[in-house]
Write a protein that binds this DNA or RNA. Structure first.
Lengths: 368, 368
DNA sequence: AAGTGTCACAAAACCGGTTTTGTAAGTCAA
DNA sequence: TTGACTTACAAAACCGGTTTTGTGACACTT
């Protein structure tokens, strides 16, 4: 595996002009102690020979890689996360303007996540990390802080006080969601969430509770269900909640994937999402617009978030204090057609559901 | 932006043991001319000090980066490509096993694509490239071949004879699609494709034509439409084809995004996809399963393709001849529910459509 | 006229590894 | 016993840059 690309080096340029290589370097790095004449000759030679400095050699001396890293957790669900794809796009765009690059690796378990982090740090392949999908008690963040290695988190952990992060105000967003549903006329509002290990899932659940409390609505533990964050999980969650004696007339879902599965369950029972049952998601996935009914969802621009986080990390590398780099954004409700005033009360819904279920016993989940 | 990570160097290890640093290097690289005793002492010190070699320094000498690059075209559509997300996952997994990493950059125009390629090559940040979404006449591939820089393409170009590639047999797949539709009873089969600059789009169109010919069906140019590869494009394409005097009873779409838009158009007109009109996509997007109706589609494993391509690139770097690294795979039809026997003839469909269109004039496209 | 700066560049050190070259000590055959 | 090989390692060169140090030529004071 040899990669002996016989490319032009700084020595070639120096020899071509007849100066020392240090001089060439100084010209290229805009030092002032070079005569105009020499500068021109060197620049011309650089042009002619098509010289570009080797990032590796430069990095070795500078101790910097001009490369940021991101480790993506994969495999604990089905396929890649559409949010992350746009997020990475946003990062790459921001970095491109600064001449930095992004190293992407994946990890399929918690241990592997840390192993990969360690390897990249030890080998000095990156200058800093972007951490996504933070957990309440996140081993990656613990490790990076312990190592004092620069990073920025997209999402917070249980104690977000001492590192840089960018996050959505999940609590407020979900409290707003509850308020929105209440204003539509819903009083029994269900929450379909994900594992509380994930910080955003916990915050969204908390926001849901806060929303209920602010409105003086009773909190009913039965109206909360936590599932795997996937369409399948959404299907099961909707099944759980709608099988209650007093089913919710609206389902606030922690992600679009959950909402999509919930809508599917409704359709399976012949319920119209948007009138018989209201379903709201979160993520603003483009495909939501093409579902039936088009999905009402909270949206943040993943691309924008990526750019923002990348720039924050660069600030950290420039020596800014991480504590001063903490920002909260709000998600926007995109109303499409899966929400609306309830067409029946919880009691009527329960009755309708009982009839359907008797007619048509469930197969448990959509199967292949 | 200083990154003076005071980490352990090979000199520290050498001094700690009392040997020359070359000796340490030889131990770590499994040279045989080291006594068992010395080897043990060095290994112990490495362990104790937690030494890990700097990738940068090693790369400088070796002239190799242990890093592969991928440049993703973005921005000429809406958001990130879900296929690519899984594809990258597949690459990253394969590379992880070999201790290599993946550098991801994005480019938002043709020129930018080449600029980025040039920069990465000149700066020697990567050892080879993976090129995706090949065009019939692809400037990236032309450039890489001219530079003799190692790469593997996912997808072919007009002349795929002299480089390494992995591709789906688009022609056969789409010819099979036509055969499948014919066997269901369809005789007027439409094709909803994308720009012929993209090689896969062209091949799928060609496969469609070949399928018709093999079955002795007439080829009607009106039954082909090319649109932007997006849900919006699919919506417009379906509108175009179904507005014909003799509309197709089945739509073979070049991608899932197109199919999703086409199904939306059908729904808007009150047509049931799967009976009134058959729609088949290509990509096997997971979300297709949760559409109404669940989308019938051709599928290839993006993740598998990523792994395959990564391993091919490593073979190229190891010196294998690119010509010997060319592989064609087949996509599999995943039958869900958007295809079926036609419920009406083309004439009946035309009549039905005319009535709908009079009742309910179109807004042109789905709006916000 | 000698001392002092400045200018513009050369020369060399350095970053942290790998690889080549050199060599003292031990082994073996003649 | 001596020359030829091994063995096991030290020393140095090298990768391609950046940065520090050194220096000759000239201008400018006093």
């Amino acid at each position: 595996m040899s990669r002996l690309r016989g490319s032009v080096t700084i020595d070639d340029v120096a020899r071509h002009v007849g100066v020392a290589k240090g001089t060439v370097s100084r010209v290229l790095n805009n030092y002032t102690d070079i005569s105009e004449n020499t500068r021109k000759r060197i620049l011309k030679a650089v042009q002619e020979l098509g010289y570009q400095p080797s990032a590796t050699a430069r990095n070795l001396k500078r101790g910097r890689q001009d490369t940021l890293g991101i480790v993506i957790p994969v495999g604990h669900g089905n396929g890649a996360d559409p949010f992350l794809a746009e997020f990475i796009d946003g990062i790459a765009r921001a970095l491109d303007e600064l001449g930095l690059d992004l190293l992407v690796t994946t990890a399929h378990s918690r241990e592997h996540l840390i192993t990969t982090l360690k390897r990249l740090i030890a080998r000095r392949k990156v200058d800093g990390f972007i951490v996504t999908r933070t957990e309440v008690d996140d081993p990656r963040i613990a490790y990076l802080m312990e190592q004092k290695f620069p990073f920025v988190a997209h999402g917070r952990t249980g104690d977000p006080s001492s590192y840089a992060w960018f996050d959505i105000d999940n609590e407020t967003t979900f409290a707003d969601g509850v308020r929105h549903l209440y204003s539509l006329g819903h009083e029994r509002i269900g929450f379909l969430g994900g594992s509380l290990d994930l910080n955003f899932a916990r915050q969204r659940r908390d926001g849901y509770r806060q929303g209920l409390e602010a409105l003086g609505l009773a909190h009913d533990q039965d109206l909360e269900t936590l599932q795997a964050i996937s369409e399948k999980g959404g299907f099961k969650g909707a099944q759980t909640l709608l099988s209650l004696d007093g089913p919710p007339t609206a389902l606030l879902c922690a992600t679009d994937a959950l909402a999509i599965g919930a809508v599917q369950f409704c359709r399976k029972l012949g319920l119209q999402a948007g009138s018989d049952v209201t379903v709201i998601g979160y993520d603003g996935l483009p495909v939501g617009e093409y579902l039936d009914p088009p999905l009402t969802t909270f949206s943040q621009s993943a691309q924008e978030a990526g750019g923002r986080v990348a720039r924050m990390l660069i600030d950290v590398l420039d020596g800014k204090s991480p504590q001063s780099l903490q920002a909260l954004a709000k998600a926007k409700l995109i109303r499409r057609a899966s929400d609306g005033a309830p067409s029946m009360t919880s009691e009527a819904l329960a009755l309708a559901l009982r009839n359907r279920l008797n007619q048509q016993p469930l197969s448990g989940s959509k199967g292949e």
